[in-house]
Simulated assay, not measured.
Amino acid sequence: MISMDAALPPWRRVAMVLERRIADGTYPKGSRLPGAVPLSHEFNVAPSTAAKAVRDLKERGLVTASPGWGTFVA
Rank of each mutant, 00 (worst) to 15 (best):
8 L>W: 04
38 P>I: 14
16 M>V: 03
44 N>W: 05
20 R>S: 02
29 K>A: 05
23 A>T: 13
36 A>T: 06
54 V>I: 15
73 V>F: 10
39 L>V: 12
69 W>P: 00
72 F>I: 11
73 V>D: 04
52 K>S: 08
25 G>I: 06
27 Y>T: 04
38 P>F: 11
4 M>I: 04
46 A>G: 12
58 K>H: 08
73 V>I: 11
49 T>A: 06
26 T>K: 05
59 E>N: 12
52 K>M: 10
49 T>F: 03
20 R>Q: 13
3 S>Q: 14
68 G>E: 06
22 I>L: 11
35 G>L: 02
72 F>A: 11
15 A>Y: 08
72 F>W: 09
12 R>T: 11
58 K>Q: 13
42 E>M: 15
23 A>I: 13
44 N>Q: 13
40 S>I: 11
2 I>T: 14
55 R>A: 09
2 I>S: 14
39 L>I: 14
53 A>P: 04
60 R>H: 10
57 L>F: 13
21 R>I: 00
21 R>S: 03
52 K>A: 13
55 R>P: 00
59 E>H: 04
2 I>H: 13
42 E>K: 08
68 G>P: 03
37 V>I: 10
53 A>T: 02
17 V>Y: 07
62 L>V: 06
49 T>I: 14
11 W>E: 06
69 W>F: 10
38 P>K: 01
48 S>Y: 05
14 V>H: 00
58 K>A: 15
3 S>N: 15
24 D>T: 05
12 R>N: 09
70 G>P: 02
18 L>M: 09
3 S>L: 08
23 A>G: 05
19 E>V: 00
63 V>W: 05
40 S>N: 09
35 G>H: 00
47 P>H: 01
58 K>C: 10
21 R>N: 10
63 V>C: 08
43 F>I: 06
23 A>Q: 14
28 P>G: 13
55 R>W: 03
46 A>Y: 13
